[in-house]
Every structure is written in C-alpha cells, then in structure tokens.
Amino acid sequence: MLEVEGVSKNFGGLRAVADVTMRVEEGSITALIGPNGAGKTTLFATISGFLRPDTGRVRFLGRDIAGLSPERICRLGLARTFQIVQPFAGLSVRENIAVGAHLHRPGRTEALAHAELIGRQIGMGRMLDQPAGALTIAGRKRLELARALATDPKLLLLDEVMAGLNPTEIEEIVAVVRRIRLAGVTILLIEHVMQAVVSLAETTWVLSDGVLIARGSPAEIAADPKVVEAYLGRGAAARLAGREGGAAHA
C-alpha cells in the first residue's frame, strides 16, 4: 500500500533520513520505532507531504506522492496525526473533528453528524462540546486520532499517540487502534510505548540515526543486537550477552 524507496532528507549538514526503503502492507498495523532523534517524525513528514524528500520516491496505492502537498495527499486517503498535538484550540471537539469530516462531506449537518459518530467511536462522546483547548493531554491525543480518522483515510500515520498517557489510557487507545484496523484502515505508527508496539504491530521497522537497521516481528526486533545497541550504546548487546553467559557459568 505504501512503498518508500531510497528516501533521504537533509537539514543543512544533518542527514535526518538516509536512504530509507520500507513498505507497509495493506490491512496491517506496522510500527516504526527508534531512539529519540532517529528521524522517525521527519520520515512521517516526508511521507505526508510536509517535507519534500531530497532523493527517493514515496508510492501510495501505486502512485508517486513525493512532493505533493499535504492536502493533496490527504485527499488521496493518507492522513497523519501530529506528535506535538495541534488542536484548533478555539473550536469545540465536535467542530475540530468536523473539519476532517468535511473532506468528503460538503454539507455542514452531515459533517457534524459524522464528527459525532467518530467522536463516540474514539471514546470522546462526553467531550464533544468542550473547547479543544480545555482538553487534557490524553484528550488531545484522542482528538488528533479522531480528526484524522474523520477524513476517511485508507492509511493512517499515527505519530506517538500514546506518549504521555497512563497505562489505563494506553490500553484504551490500543483497543481503539485495533478497532480502526478492523474497519479496514491500514496503520503505520511511531511509538515509544513498547507495550503498545508488541500488542499491536505485526511488523516493526527500526530507525536509528536516519538509517533503517532492522525489520521483523516485535519479538525478533527485541532480540536483535543492532537494535539493543542503538538504544543502549555500542557494545551493550555483547555486554548483556556476556553477563547472561557469566550467570549461566556460575
């Protein structure tokens, strides 16, 4: 459904994303993980049209979308959320979601009705008339998800929708994400909450310093020495293995 081929993005001398090639299968939940500063959000911005890749191609449903504007890409059925939440603070939750719903629904009544439906699905039924600026962080994360979902996407890019939430809230969102996939939406998510990655994703890609270093099921990834080193530092995998080995000898 989504194919990223050799995409690079530089900021001055900094190579944020270097020659990344990855794919997302239709109907899957795919996770993109990596340490802070690995380039995950930059890659998302490049896919969703907020940044133009310096090299490479991004194919969505067989069409090259690299360089198209975010609004065009959204209309093709690829919606994203923002890691740093961007609510329309002065509007109510319902009105916020309705902006997304308007993409394929010109009528105001229809869009507001759809917004309410989506809001209830995402568990915001009681917050619909609150101003978005008054929501807690958990509420704002949900709102990001609800707005993007209201555009009827085929592929949803979720950028850390669980960061800053407590375990109960995470469980709720995990259930919501699962339901969205069941409804036929493919999902690519950036996440630091491993509990969520393990329980949701079939395939996980690991990005470190702008380079893809591993790919596999969450269990395979956790056992990959390169991944352990990316998170804990050079030689960490060997040291960990050594300690386990030593314990076994004793």
Partner: peptide
C-alpha cells in the same frame, strides 16, 4: 458560519498545519 468554507476558514485561523493535514487547501 454554517458552511464547509467557513469551517475551513476558521480551521486555517486556528492552525494552518493541522488544517493542511486534514485536506484543507489553505
């Protein structure tokens, strides 16, 4: 106030990037 155009206009006022991400041609 009761049209799609108006809803999009207000969305642009509140946050241009978020509006673009939702398919609004700012």
């Amino acid at each position: 106030e009761h049209s799609r155009f108006g809803a999009r206009l207000v969305a642009v006022r509140e946050n241009e990037d978020a509006a673009r991400a939702l398919g609004v041609d700012v």
